[in-house]
Write a protein that binds this DNA or RNA. Structure first.
Lengths: 348, 348
DNA sequence: TTGTACGCGTTATCAA
DNA sequence: TTGATAACGCGTACAA
């Protein structure tokens, strides 16, 4: 028994053909006579050869069929966010059409951790958000000519972005609230930076997360003085915690709460129920995302519907285009306001 | 301007050293004098060389630093399951310690889709469940000497498994229910096969999903005649739907419901509330998994706590061991019963 | 339809 | 501390 793995050369020799012929049998790029094919296949079988080595093939082709997806946060956290999941869904789909798969990467200091953008054999990369640390590796990757696309973030010059009209959309929801007659409004925002513990927001300048800042601005365009509680994450329980604080003082109660995500809104609704408030009679609540919140029935959130899946799909298509050598432009998606049964005029 | 990308050979020539020396500067495997290192680095800078090509490196090293994770279901579905997410968490962690990352793969027919186990440059593979289609590619991969581990499934001879004592654990929960005095019990199970639309379960023989079958058997060990509704997925809304059916006929109402997942249990609780039933006074509910169900407060589910993260971690460690050439044994984890406030003796 | 020849970019080994 | 050499395993012009 040889200790070495059989290669296509071995198979070719065994079958009595040239390596290139054997190669073609497996790739199917060129017609091969049935008899030759069979000989090659038999030889492969005999030698226990199970097809070309993907590593060698990818070196030769210059393509690995792998697209890296870089998250700023711990992967476990990222996957708790339905919006990111849906986005991944669209991304998976459009990237699969190219025959590629997704490699999970985390934007992190090395610390002996997993593969980085620079060491992984990726054909392209999709950044989900784009905070500080990444910048260096980003330069290296781009220098290598690897296409990069950013979703909801800014990676600087020449990196196509897939974005959202967060500010306008949130302004629209706020206008809806004002149109109903509300004046005492509280805001519940997404985290202002990674590892944010949650708390009342003092200054907009503290915010390093684009999405949070943009949506906050949209709300403040309409309600400049509305107090804002920044949650530690987009979770129902975080919204619940925020809601408890907001509804704690009966004298100060707002008549409407604008949340930056549907999950936060769901938590706020639950807090309102806890406090003996009826939604929407006593307090109106709006969300953001337009996802299906498992278990929220019978409420139908008044919210902003964003095209989550499409965002991922667009990023994938941009990547595919760039791999073809085309130039991909940034693309901005538009949200759509959807009235549900969680908003109403304030009680007199 | 040359249209070609600079290689390490170019850098070496520019720096006046041999390619191997230049290589060592980047890999750090061998000490290099400071002056030489600097010359190489300068040359790299001048040529716009940003480090070794991962594809070539992986061919040479025989390692890509990529571990494939294969799901039986659509990836979007898999990511909706908190148990899988947590498992991925543990897997990511242990695999990162080796400097590897995860490539998302789907157990599917080719259909021009993403990369398969056979075409992706993976060093190892982790199967999450193991149904039919995979088998063929599995053989090819194993023939190539790539380590494979299965979580909650059976991939046949010689493939180490990471499992759970599903049947015993579920039996324990059922015994708890019986110990409280319940006799009219309904079961809500996980899907019995992929693309299962949900419905009452006729025969245990219909079940192709190991987890579902094992847990069902555990419950039936105690309540042999309990009717079982098999949900379409592990979702709160699915539990809600099941609960509505179960509580529909006031005359037939069970006093306890044993659900195969916490999410299903959460839905059942909501259905009970809808039907005007108090939990646990009017109906007891048990779950399975021991995850934190976002928004379920103030309930604390009586449930079976399974070591989700550890399962993933163990799979990763098995993979790491196998890559070192060691033999990894199957490992079975044990669940732990946890009493919450959703079970109580039946009302008289 | 098949074979020849070569390069993809790196790194391990060993000798200097 | 540095350099020469030889793979790693494959795909693809191009010629036959």
């Amino acid at each position: 028994m040889s200790t070495r793995r059989a290669t296509i050369t071995d198979v070719a020799r065994e079958a009595g053909v040239s390596p290139s012929t054997a190669s073609v049998v497996f790739s199917g790029k060129t017609p091969v006579s049935d008899s030759t094919r069979q000989r090659v296949l038999d030889a492969a079988q005999a030698l226990g050869y199970t097809g070309p080595d993907p590593r060698a093939a990818s070196l030769r082709r210059g393509r690995s069929g792998i697209v890296g997806v870089v998250f700023e946060e711990h992967l476990g956290r990222a996957f708790q966010d339905p919006v990111k999941i849906l986005m991944m869904d669209g991304l998976t789909e459009s990237v699969a059409s190219m025959g590629a798969g997704l490699l999970l990467l985390q934007d992190q200091a090395e610390e002996g951790g997993g593969p980085s953008l620079t060491t992984a054999p990726v054909d392209a990369a999709v950044l989900v958000g784009c905070s500080g640390i990444l910048r260096e590796s980003l330069a290296a990757v781009r220098a290598r000519g690897i296409p990069v696309v950013v979703i909801e973030g800014d990676a600087g010059e020449g990196v196509p972005r897939v974005g959202l009209d967060n500010r306008e959309a949130q302004r629209q929801a706020a206008s809806h609230i004002r149109g109903l007659g509300h004046t005492r409004v509280a805001l519940v925002t997404l985290p202002v930076r990674s590892a944010w513990p949650g708390g009342w927001l003092e200054s907009v300048d503290d915010i390093t997360v684009d999405v949070t800042r943009d949506r906050l601005r949209g709300a403040r365009d309409v309600f400049p003085d509305a107090p804002a509680y920044a949650a530690a994450g987009s979770l129902i329980d975080e919204g619940l915690a925020a809601g408890r604080l907001i509804f704690a003082d009966p004298g100060m109660r707002p008549t409407a709460v604008i949340a930056q995500s549907d999950l936060l809104a769901a938590g706020v609704i639950r807090a309102a129920e806890e406090a003996g408030l009826q939604v929407p009679q006593d307090v109106s609540v709006t969300g953001f995302d337009g996802i299906v919140v498992d278990g929220l029935a019978p409420y139908e959130l008044t919210t902003i519907v964003q095209p989550t899946v499409e965002k991922g799909r667009a990023a994938g298509q941009a990547v595919v285009a760039m791999l073809r050598g085309e130039v991909a432009a940034s693309i901005d998606f538009t949200c759509e306001f959807r009235a549900g049964n969680t908003t109403a005029p304030p009680a007199e």
